[in-house]
């Protein structure tokens, strides 16, 4: 555990809390992509099946359970409890275009051709692109509420901080995993446009609005 890794994890927890609080306090999931949230639930389910096969630390297990529980909690709030507020007319990204290539890629490029390893690899690939339906939704409506922007910033920062963690671990521990690193770079790059808008607009008190 190093500072980048810890900050990355905390940023991820913060993103989850912001999202759940936004939905709960405003009794609305307007502006949130249910398709991205569905992909995240698939990601954590596929990745953390190792909860049953290997134990790393209490911290590791608690975080995994938290991420799985929060993703299903979000799904429940969006598709059941606050279903009426779900903006599905703007949430139209075809997720099969993300899921199917990730399945094929995970079968083709992995560390070991075993069920758990392939599921882990699939989850890493899918996570890297899971935010696309959400970003597509923001670009379609041309704006995002500030709270949604904070959520996206925290969620994007998490993998960016993991990149620093991997640089650190490469030098300090000679540990590296090309699959996670390449996917992490892709994931972070997808947020770059949003990061720019967040820093130049939202942090200056303006609403995130895309240029017409």
């Amino acid at each position: 555990m190093n500072i980048f890794r810890l900050l990355g994890d905390l940023s991820h927890v913060l993103a989850i809390l912001i999202l759940l609080l936004k939905i709960w306090k405003t009794r609305s999931c307007a502006g949130i992509s249910g398709r991205s949230q569905l992909l995240f639930a698939i990601v954590y389910t596929a990745r953390y099946l190792d909860l049953f096969t290997s134990f790393v630390s209490p911290y590791n297990s608690i975080m995994k359970i938290l991420f799985i529980a929060a993703s299903y909690g979000t799904i429940y709030l969006m598709f059941m409890k606050f279903k009426a507020t779900y903006d599905h007319n703007h949430d139209t990204f075809r997720i099969e275009f993300l899921v199917l290539p990730c399945i094929v890629l995970a079968l083709a490029v992995n560390h070991e051709f075993s069920p758990l390893e392939i599921l882990w690899t699939f989850s890493i690939y899918l996570e890297s692109v899971a935010i696309l339906p959400q970003l597509f939704m923001v670009s379609k409506t041309g704006e995002a509420e500030s709270i949604t922007s904070h959520y996206l910033f925290a969620l994007g920062s998490y993998r960016a901080l993991y990149l620093l963690n991997w640089v650190y671990r490469y030098y300090a521990e000679n540990h590296y995993d090309w699959i996670a690193i390449v996917a992490g770079i892709v994931q972070t790059v997808l947020y770059c446009d949003f990061f720019y808008l967040y820093i130049t607009k939202v942090l200056k008190g303006k609403k995130l609005q895309l240029p017409a």
Binding site: D9, T53, S54, V56, N60, M63, S114, Y162, N165, A180
Partner: peptide, 10 residues
């Protein structure tokens, strides 16, 4: 552990 190394990251 099944894999080649421990997946200690999240």
């Amino acid at each position: 552990l099944k894999g080649k190394y421990l997946k200690d990251e999240l």
